[in-house]
Simulated scan of single mutants.
Amino acid sequence: MRFLIIIPAHNEENNLPFTLNSLQQQSFKDFKVVIVNDGSTDSTSEVIRKYTDTDSRFEMVALQKSVHQPGSKVVNAFKKGLNTQTIDGFEIICKFDADIILPENYLETVEDSFKNNPKYGLVGGLLYVEKDGDWVYEGNSNKHHVRGPMKAYRKESFIQMGGIRETLGWDNIDSILLEKLGWKEVVLPELQVKLIKVKGADYTIRPADYYGRYFYFLGLNRFLAYIAASKEAIKIKSVSFFFSIIKSYEACRSGKLELKISKEEQKMINNQRWKMLKKKWLKI
């Protein structure tokens, strides 16, 4: 099975070499890497050329700089890169970040997983971050969810769900859609992926605004959005945080901001969230 790997990169001169080196060191060699240089103002383009000039598996796509907002920017860059390729010659489509270090057996293990399990639609490892000189599990999501920096999709499942959506919450929307289409999302915990920098540091919106927008663009109805907001507020023991999230969510609703999911998909997502809520909190 051949991999098509798309890596959006904006001002990643310090991190990108680690990612690209880890790809060159993979035990599985049958892949193509498209690095999308999204308007970088540092030496990212020079870094990329060091690989494209010496390894035919690497290619660069240059874009003008776009506004850096969570979700939409990175997916826009991913799609621009994907659109430059003919996917007929690939079986696995990956969206990787430009600041991760993959273990040498990452692609080999993912390929084996897809090959041996026809219903696997999305596969990935677990993210680890450096803390006090050690690499520890990031813990920002449950261990059954493949995080955004290291997504590997079976091409058929990717096409069937209509690709990833250019919106905040895209890396949860894909999981829900794939599940409803009968595909399995699988995390391989033995694959420990190192995340070099902390995500979200360069986003231009505050945490409460982020969550409000996230719940809206995920397609959550008001009841589920309020429940989700209360969970986030409880985590930091702040009532005001709850109301700030709700204010952001309601502002999106009032503005009727465009969702990147259909009405049917929105219904699907709410049903899945309600099912999870009943199972986890109501014990139904």
Rank of each mutant, 00 (worst) to 15 (best):
M1F: 09
M1E: 12
F3N: 09
A9F: 00
H10P: 00
H10L: 11
E12Y: 00
E13A: 14
N14F: 06
N15W: 00
L20R: 02
S22E: 05
L23Y: 02
Q24I: 06
F31G: 08
F31Q: 06
K32R: 14
D38F: 01
D42P: 09
I48F: 01
R49Y: 02
K50I: 01
Y51M: 03
T54E: 10
S56K: 14
S56R: 11
L63M: 15
P70L: 07
S72W: 01
L82R: 13
L82N: 09
I87W: 06
F90A: 12
D99T: 09
L102W: 04
L107N: 05
K115C: 13
K115E: 14
N116F: 13
N116H: 15
N117Y: 11
N117S: 12
G121P: 08
G121W: 04
G125W: 05
G125T: 11
L126M: 14
Y128V: 07
D134C: 06
W135I: 10
Y137K: 10
Y137A: 08
G139A: 11
K143R: 15
H145A: 07
R147V: 05
A152I: 06
K155A: 09
E156H: 05
I159D: 13
R165K: 14
R165C: 02
E166R: 13
I176G: 00
L177I: 11
L178F: 03
L181Q: 14
E185F: 02
V186S: 07
V187C: 14
L188P: 08
G200R: 14
T204G: 03
D209G: 13
G212T: 05
Y214S: 05
L218A: 01
N221I: 13
A233G: 06
K235G: 03
V239K: 14
S240V: 05
S240G: 00
F243K: 08
K247R: 13
S248Y: 08
R253Y: 07
S254W: 10
L257R: 05
L259K: 05
K267H: 08
K275F: 13
L277D: 06
K280F: 10
W281D: 13
L282F: 15
K283F: 12
